[in-house]
Amino acid sequence: MTAPRDELVRTAAHLASLGLSPGSSGNLSVRDGDGRVLLTPTGADLAALDPDALSVLDLDGTHLDGPRPSKELPLHLAFYRRDPANRAVVHLHSRQAVAASCLPPWSARSALPPLTPYFVMRVGQTPLLPYAPPGDPGQAADLERLDFPCRAALLQNHGPVTAGPTLKAAAEAAVEIEEVSALLLLLGARHPRLLTPAQARALAARYGSCWTDEREPEEALRPA
């Protein structure tokens, strides 16, 4: 079994190799046992992490060891507190998802519409959190207080953050958000066909993601 430190470093390098982490942007964390969290340090280059130089914290945010943690620590802890099944969190500044975060949300529960089955299967509903300065604990509190299930969010004018039961799942969700955001931008002002609420709920139930949004596609389903 791969050690959590090594898995975090390997996953971060993979996301960087896909061009999803420009410069020193982005941060990842993974649970290490029941009481500790490993988090990328502030200002870290995800392509060149040292497994022996990660920040170590407890679930209250107390810094236990290693370099100073990313300022986005509150977002990571909010996802862990929302659902104990979350064992990893990924936050990126990937280009297409950042662009999508600058647009009005599709609905109150998901900034992005159910364009593809894979978005619903791997990510699920993804609310847009109102703008806050990076690292603002108030934004993390907003995430924690959401009264519907989600394992991802778009931070307005900032980018995506995803959580999952494994680091692989959280990373795959981040990649899928980038892909569905690219499709949304490519479609522009057109009215695409979307999955219906029933179709999205069925996929979410089958694959263990979250979709409780009831918005109907309306004119998007009408023939051109």
Rank of each mutant, 00 (worst) to 15 (best):
M1R: 08
T2F: 08
P4N: 13
R5A: 15
R5P: 02
L8E: 02
T11V: 15
T11I: 15
A13S: 12
H14Y: 12
A16D: 06
S21T: 15
P22M: 08
S25C: 10
V30G: 03
G33P: 09
V37P: 07
A44E: 04
L49S: 09
L49H: 07
P51T: 15
A53K: 10
R68S: 09
R68Y: 10
P74C: 14
L77R: 14
F79D: 01
A85N: 06
N86F: 15
A88Q: 04
V89M: 10
Q96E: 07
Q96M: 13
V98Q: 02
A99V: 07
W106D: 00
S107K: 08
R109A: 00
R109W: 03
L115S: 02
L115E: 02
T116K: 02
T116V: 14
R122P: 00
T126N: 08
L128F: 02
L128P: 01
P130A: 13
P130C: 10
Y131C: 03
P133A: 14
Q139G: 10
Q139I: 08
A141H: 10
L146I: 14
L146A: 03
D147I: 05
D147P: 00
C150Q: 05
C150L: 13
R151N: 07
A152R: 04
L155I: 11
Q156G: 00
H158P: 01
L167V: 01
A170P: 08
E172Y: 12
A182K: 11
L185F: 04
L186G: 07
G188Y: 09
A189P: 00
R193S: 11
L194H: 06
T196E: 02
R201P: 01
A202R: 11
A202W: 02
Y207S: 07
G208D: 07
T212L: 07
E216L: 04
P217R: 06
E218S: 03
P223N: 12
